[in-house]
């Protein structure tokens, strides 16, 4: 049984969670949380941490040289830099609409890269 201390970021409360992992049974238990979302966060953060990646891609024909983008859902934390490599290669041409898909299934994560603003 090993336990990890993390701070819950689901809401601004910032509960100090202790997540215990029982490797024999493969189960997690969370203490220190004040709501069920905290428990879920604690387990996910240890078993399969995910993040939304936000970045920019090169855009041509717009008033700015970069278009902000994000993954439309959280991806595995370990995949972030792989994702960035894909993002760095993208070149788009204006006009672009907010929400428009820029890259489908980025780095095999199942998430799409979408524009987070309209431009041009």
């Amino acid at each position: 049984m090993n336990s990890t201390q993390i701070i819950c970021i689901v809401c601004p409360m910032g509960c100090h969670l202790e997540v215990a992992h029982d490797s024999a049974s493969g189960t997690y238990s969370v203490s220190g949380n004040k709501c069920s979302r905290g428990k879920e966060y604690g387990i996910n953060e240890l078993s399969n941490p995910t993040r939304v990646v936000t970045s920019t891609v090169v855009i041509e024909g717009a008033h700015l040289k970069r278009l902000p983008v994000k993954t439309n859902r959280p991806i595995a934390k370990g995949k972030m830099f792989e994702c960035m490599k894909e993002i760095d290669k993208v070149r788009v041409i204006a006009p672009v609409k907010m929400g428009q898909i820029i890259l489908k299934d980025i780095a095999g994560t199942g998430a799409d890269l979408i524009a987070t603003r309209s431009m041009g």
Binding site: V52, T56, P68, K70
Partner: peptide
């Protein structure tokens, strides 16, 4: 907001996590 391209905006107002440019738009 246009330069705050990270997410985390809008949880109270829109009940969803938006980036700065999305919130602005």
């Amino acid at each position: 907001l246009q330069q705050c391209i990270h997410n985390g905006f809008g949880l109270h107002v829109f009940k969803e996590e938006l980036t700065g440019p999305e919130y602005a738009e």
